[in-house]
């Protein structure tokens, strides 16, 4: 079996080869879902949005220009799709008012006394206020710059800064048991 190279897939896609999309789908569908799931926790929505990502990719196959890797490209598309969905639901605008409450939801700490560290980190991130969480995730995991995050979420760079600071403050509080392990 020939190795499936990125160029190969792209060339085949450009000549309308559906099997090429199938190859791509097989390789990256779960990854695209995972990327969306990080931002949106509803599995039905996640899978619908993943479909849109691949459909969009197929529709713009002739003009597509991938400078990095296909995986990174699809991932970026997935994140954009998820954010587009959030924007449509106006979730960020609505949140602004009750966003000033500092700190995470109370009583989280006792819930995870016996879990594993990774679970704790995940939970600590999950309990961040939604906008704060999305900002943090886009910075930490998608490695978007503050400017890119601001553009994606339609908020000011100043707000991104505040949300990042807030996220770290909360995470530090939630995870303080694990800090200071060495040095």
């Amino acid at each position: 079996m020939q190795e499936i190279s990125q160029e190969n897939i792209l060339t085949r896609l450009k000549s309308n080869d559906k099997a090429a999309l199938k190859d791509l789908f097989q390789l990256h569908h779960a990854g695209v879902c995972a990327a969306i799931f990080r931002i949106i926790k509803d599995r039905n929505t996640v899978e619908d949005l993943a479909q849109e990502v691949f459909l969009r990719f197929w529709q713009k196959r002739e003009t597509i220009n991938v400078s990095s890797s296909l995986q990174a490209y699809l991932r970026r598309m997935a994140v954009n799709e998820a954010l587009g969905h959030l924007r449509k639901k106006k979730m960020f605008e609505e949140e602004i008012n009750n966003d000033t409450l500092a700190g995470a939801a109370p009583g989280v700490e006792h819930q995870y006394l016996h879990g594993e560290l990774e679970e704790h980190i995940k939970m600590a991130i999950d309990v961040l206020p939604p906008r704060c969480r999305t900002v943090f995730q886009l910075s930490r995991f998608e490695e978007l710059s503050y400017r890119e995050i601001a553009e994606q979420l339609n908020i000011s760079i100043k707000t991104v800064e505040n949300q990042m600071g807030k996220a770290l403050k909360i995470l530090r509080k939630e995870l303080h048991h694990y800090l200071h392990f060495f040095l």
């Binding site: 779960a30 995972a34 990080r38 560290l117 980190i121 930490r140 770290l168």
Partner: peptide, 18 residues
């Protein structure tokens, strides 16, 4: 250290019927 910890968090695998 906190930043490093969150970075080690692997993306959850998403099980889906492809």
């Amino acid at each position: 250290q906190l930043w490093g910890m969150t970075g080690d968090l692997e993306e959850e695998e998403y099980e889906v019927d492809t």
